[in-house]
Design a protein around this nucleic acid. Structure first.
Length: 561
RNA sequence: UGCCCGAUGGUGUAACUGGCAACACGUCUGUUUUUGGUACAGAAGAGUCUAGGUUCGAGCCCUAGUCGGGCAACCA
């Protein structure tokens, strides 16, 4: 049955490539993938695409997937990021086969570089970066050979060795591959393989003062690990030629990895580059990498997103070679679908307005039963306390309420969910004319679940509520999109930060929550009836409850207005 | 004056590799509902960037354009 459905779903182009390879002789146990983040920042939803693609392939073909940290630039990389990345990948529900580091291969890479020098395929250049840039030409103009291009093997070997020994300052010498300065692909114009860097590395400490560049490192690392399919994003397409050239230099009879490229994921109303996300964090425009407004995995987690919803989202957007600009509405749809089935419903009043039921016996309370989740028969029921004074949502009262609007008004009735049907009598106002309290009457025979005729009446609106003396006060963080425009970095004139939505966070204090949540723990998720899905924040304590709004419910009425 | 990708409803992805353009999200309309949620039923919305060509037949193949993106860091 599962197979039938599997069969029906068409393969994405990467899966088709793998299938093709399998048909043409790859054994199924030769399949191996990898996810290769650079530990210089936190993972975001775009990385989730790469993670789900690679680990998804691993699951599909029962193949190992390595987690490889591409740590060849000690000036940007930190252990903190390594730890955060591992946490995120696990959280998404994936287990890597081996935890690898490009830095594990520094010695092997060095030995191969020596081999290239010996074969006349690499040389030490000793010019300034400006001179080298000039010689490199432009996309439309071929480059020219530099003066050190024909150094002898012996001299190159000696210089390269002394680079490694730390005899030179940064920028004095670099090692370049000797390919073709007139190549139409700029990347093939004698690309740099090593630079001198007197910086401690988060793993190798001060063992090295030369560090390999990405192009030289990546393919050879794939080769060492025997990765069959090395998947990366589209901008690396031109690098493939170089990837293959470098592999040619060291390849023997072992499996030869192949690089293939797919498009990045972009979401509207946010930015997705690590550099820009870093800026938001460093300039305190958000509260850290895990700010619930951030498109980072950690941000989404704190916001209340589930791994399942993210995986489902990634599955839905697909894999192709055209730049995707996905509507956040799709992401939201994914989390709603998940949470609708799994979260218990709770009454929470975010903007409380006191309501007094004048014909309800003063000082009396009673217990009413409430379903935890109408979508889940096994979710059971809980008790709520009903009393004469309760809170309703300020926005649910309109003194003069039109028939078509399902709210409480003076002379207009409404049902209190799991409670009684009430009828508005009077709006009590302060000196400025603000409504501070609403008086109403209730129909004692209309109690929900009582089975009475009165309880079965059709009433236009149903309100959520919480007893005025039986509740817990909480803070609710209501999040909105971080940017006011669909593509904040799409404007050439304006900086993306000019489009930041100043109302992206509304902190609501004094929210009244049903007593059942008084001991709610961080990460717990609930549906606040009629409002949306909420998640207990990391910093929440029983003394100071904090909820983050994950997503609102779909609101037909809000759109209507 | 170059090289490399890409182009299918508003968005994204399909189309059994040449046979009536489908699915999801979004939008709209009903039904049900003690959440203006969910569920259910239905509708609108593209004739596949353009022009040629091959073919009985082209979104798929070929040619030439157009448009969009990428390529000149001692970044990855």
């Amino acid at each position: 049955m599962d197979n039938v459905e599997e069969e029906k779903k068409s393969l994405n182009f990467i899966e088709q490539i793998v299938e093709e390879d399998l048909k043409e002789g790859y054994s199924s146990d030769s399949l191996k993938f990898r996810f290769p983040p650079e530990p210089n920042g936190y993972l975001h939803i775009g990385h989730a695409k790469a993670i789900c693609l690679n680990f998804g392939l691993g699951e599909r073909y029962n193949s190992p997937v390595n987690l490889r940290f591409d740590d060849t630039n000690p000036s940007k990389e930190e252990q903190e990021y390594v730890d955060a990345i591992k946490y995120d990948v696990n959280w998404l529900g994936y287990q890597w086969d081996a935890e690898c580091y490009s830095s594990d291969y520094f010695q092997q890479l060095y030995d191969w570089a020596v081999l290239l020098i010996q074969n006349g395929k690499a040389y030490v250049d000793s010019q300034s970066s400006e001179d080298m840039a000039t010689q490199k030409g432009t996309p439309t103009k071929p480059g020219v050979n530099g003066p050190f291009r024909d150094r002898s093997v012996e001299e190159n070997l000696d210089l390269f060795n002394r680079m490694k020994q730390g005899e030179f300052k940064e920028g004095e010498h670099i090692l370049r591959a000797k390919i073709d300065m007139t190549h139409t692909n700029m990347l093939m114009r004698d690309p740099i393989m090593y630079r001198v860097m007197h910086k401690p590395h988060h793993r190798t400490g001060s063992d090295w003062c030369i560090y390999p560049m990405y192009d030289w490192t990546h393919g050879e690392s794939d080769y060492v690990e025997q990765i069959s399919h090395s998947l990366c994003s589209l901008e690396f397409k031109p690098h493939r030629e170089l990837y293959d050239w470098f592999l040619d230099q060291v390849h023997d009879e072992k499996l030869r990895p192949k690089q293939r490229e797919f498009s990045r994921l972009n979401l509207n109303y946010t930015v997705m580059s690590k550099r820009k996300l870093m800026q938001l964090v460093e300039e305190n425009l958000v509260n850290g990498w895990d700010d619930p407004r951030m498109p980072t995995i950690s941000g989404l987690r704190r916001r209340g997103y589930t791994p399942k919803s993210i995986r489902n989202f990634i599955d839905t957007v697909g894999v192709s070679k055209r730049e995707q600009m996905i509507d956040v509405a799709l992401l939201e749809s994914c989390i709603r679908t998940d949470l609708n089935k799994t979260t218990n419903r709770i009454m929470a009043v975010l903007d409380p307005l006191k309501l007094v039921i004048t014909n309800y016996p003063e000082g009396e309370t009673e217990v009413v039963m409430a379903d935890n989740n109408p979508e889940d028969e096994n979710a059971g029921q809980r008790e709520m306390i009903f009393s004469q004074e309760i809170y309703i949502e300020r926005g649910d009262f309109l003194e003069e309420c039109p028939k078509k609007v399902f709210k409480l008004g003076v002379g207009k009735e409404v049902r209190l969910k799991h409670g009684y049907i009430i009828n508005g009598v009077e709006a009590v106002k302060d000196a400025d004319g603000n409504v501070v309290e609403v008086k109403c009457t209730y129909d004692p025979k209309s109690k929900s679940g009582s089975g009475s005729e009165e309880s079965k009446r059709k009433v236009k609106g149903t309100l959520h509520w919480v007893s005025a003396s039986h509740n817990v006060t909480a803070q609710v963080n209501a999040y909105d999109r971080l940017f006011t425009v669909e593509n904040p970095d799409g404007d050439k004139e304006k900086d993306f930060k000019e489009f930041i939505n100043k109302e992206s966070l509304s902190i609501l204090k004094g929210c009244k929550i049903e007593l059942a949540l008084k001991d709610a723990k961080p990460h717990e998720r609930y549906q606040f009836q009629r409002l949306g899905y909420f998640c207990v924040d990391n910093d929440s304590t029983s003394d100071h409850l904090i909820f983050n709004r994950t997503a609102t419910l779909k609101d037909f009425w809000a759109k209507k207005k």
